[in-house]
Nucleic acid binder design. Structure first.
Length: 286
DNA sequence: CGCAGTGTTTTTGC
DNA sequence: AGCAAAAACACTGC
């Protein structure tokens, strides 16, 4: 599913291809997937040039000349696909944008959970305020991470990482993987994490997100980029959907699957033991 | 049949 | 009361 690295990959590709291009038509074949009426969307975007495309949390944001922005949430199975010809459209394509050069952008969404919305600059700013920090922003420090953890001391760490108001853009794949590499049991409470563990988790979140952007995301499920290509992050997965497999780190225990906050949670009972904390106590930056 | 999965909203529980 | 957890909900494919 598209999480931060996948949405970042798509946004960068779209920005490169669509920046400065004029939208000449929009065709909607499944109206409920657009949060505003077809007439309203058409009125706002047809004839507009795209100023830029960027990502915030898991949203693709398409900024227009008139100050409005289209936001696209891909949820689990949504895809934004660049196409030279309209005939490239496959099944489940619900919205088609036509550009002045004859190219197209398809919004494809098998499960119809994803959506397109149209927001004014003020509405967009209001929406952005609700999100937690962007993990890859310069100003997101271990100190800020620790502070936010202390504000949610009784929350279990794994569901907390998935909360968009706590941290933007992290989904099930990267939450599971970061906790594995940090050696932290997903059911631990935020308050129980030592300074060393907080620092380690912070580092692993950033390392994994950057690595995944570099390899154009994770295609463990249906994700493809704006050119329909899969990402390569799958080969770096250690725990996500690997329940029953022997842990590659300790070679002792099998990866276990539990449910936390209603989501599948994968971890190594040996490397992410709930009770035994890493004995090593190094100098902390916190 | 029933689960997977995101994220918001509602309900339950400590 | 005030959190946090769980459930419901929007869907289709396997």
């Amino acid at each position: 599913m598209p999480e931060l690295p996948e949405v970042e990959t798509i946004s960068r590709q779209l920005n490169r291809k669509l920046r400065g291009k004029k939208i000449v038509d929009v065709k909607i074949s499944l109206p409920k997937i657009v949060m505003v009426t077809a007439q309203k969307l058409r009125q706002a975007v047809v004839g507009q040039k795209i100023v830029r495309v960027y990502r915030r949390a898991k949203l693709v944001v398409v900024e227009l000349e008139n100050g409005c922005s289209m936001i696209v949430h891909l949820k689990m199975t949504g895809q934004l696909l660049l196409a030279k010809k309209r005939s490239e459209a496959s099944n489940h394509v619900h919205v088609v944008f036509d550009f002045v050069d004859g190219s197209h952008l398809f919004f494809r969404e098998v499960r119809q959970f994803g959506y397109i919305d149209l927001l004014s600059a003020a509405e967009l700013a209001e929406l952005f305020e609700k999100f937690g920090p962007e993990p890859l922003n310069k100003n997101f420090s271990p100190q800020i991470f620790k502070k936010r953890l202390q504000q949610r001391k009784r929350s279990k760490i794994k569901p907390l990482l998935l909360d968009p108001k706590f941290l933007a853009g992290i989904g099930n794949i990267y939450a599971n993987e970061a906790l594995f590499f940090a050696g932290i049991n997903p059911a631990r409470t935020a308050a129980s994490l030592s300074d060393d563990e907080i620092k380690k988790l912070y580092n692993e979140i950033i390392r994994l997100l950057k690595l995944s952007i570099k390899v154009k995301g994770c295609s463990e499920t249906d994700y493809v980029d704006a050119y329909g290509k899969k990402g390569d992050f799958e080969k770096y997965l250690e725990v996500y959907r690997k329940d029953g497999e022997i842990c590659s780190q300790c070679h002792k225990k099998k990866i276990k699957r539990i449910v936390l906050g209603g989501r599948g949670t994968f971890y190594c009972p040996q490397c992410q033991n709930y009770f035994i904390r890493p004995a090593k106590k190094s100098k902390s930056l916190l």
